[in-house]
Amino acid sequence: MVAPPDNDVLWARSLHHSHNGSPALSGVSLGVREGEILAVSGARGSGKTTLLRCLSGQLVPKEGEVWFNSTAVHTMPPMQRERLRRDRFGWIDSDPVLVPELNTWENAALPMLLRGSSRRAAKAAAMEWLERLDIGMCARKRPHALLQSQRQRVAIARALVSTPSVLFADEPTAPLYAADRSQVLRTLTTAARSHRITVVLATLDDEVATLADRTVVLVDGRRVGALRPAEAEGQAACSLSV
C-alpha cells in the first residue's frame, strides 16, 4: 500500500463496490484537501451515497483503499471505524432522522454525550449551534412538532456540534423547498469555512457548485471529467473503452 499525498485529509483509490451484485462504484479515485468543500454530483443511482458511505467508513469497499490522515480506513476493524466515525466524522442524511424521544437540544447534543462529555458542556455547545442555525427557540420541542426544514437544521447542528474533521452530507437539501435549500446550504458552508471543517457534499443541486471549491461528477459509478495525475494512477483498468 502506498501512503497518500500529505495535503489530502481523505484519499480514495479505485473504489469498487456492489450491493448484492448490482454495481454501485466501479473504480472511483479522489482526494479531499483539508478545509475544502467538495461537491459530489451525479444523477440518482450514480453511486454518490455509496461513495460517501465508503469514505466515512460505514461500508468497506469490495476493492480499493480509503485513507484518512495517513491511516487506512479500509483495513480497520469495525469497532475502530465506529470510533473514527464518532470522534472525527460528522454525517447528515437526506432525511433528517432524529431520535423521536429526545427534544431538539438533546438531539443536537447527542454526539457530545456519546463521546462522554458532561451534560452541561454538551448542552452549551448544542444551544450555541442551534442559535447559530436560527432554531434556538425550538430547543425544547420534540422532533414531531418541528417543520421539516427545522428538523434538517437540527440534523446539521447535530453533525456540527462536535466540530468533526470531515463532515459528510448526503443530499442534505433534498427534502426542502428552494428558499430553505439555499439557506441550509449557506449556513452549512459558512460554518464549515469558519471552523475549517472539510465537507464532502453529495448533491443533485446545481447551486452547490457555486458554493463548493471543487465538484466531482459521478456517472454510473464512474468519475467523469478531468483527473488530477495523483488520482489517475489507480484507473489503468478502465481507460480506453470508456
Binding site: 469497532m79 465506529e82 464518532r86 466524522f89 454525517w91 432522522v97 431520535v99 423521536p100 454526539p111 456519546l114
Partner: peptide
C-alpha cells in the same frame, strides 16, 4: 429500526 440506523451512522457505539 430507522432511528437505530441513524444513531449508528452518527457513530453511537453498538455497545451503548
Amino acid at each position: 429500526t430507522e432511528t437505530t440506523a441513524a444513531l449508528v451512522r452518527v457513530g453511537a457505539p453498538t455497545g451503548l
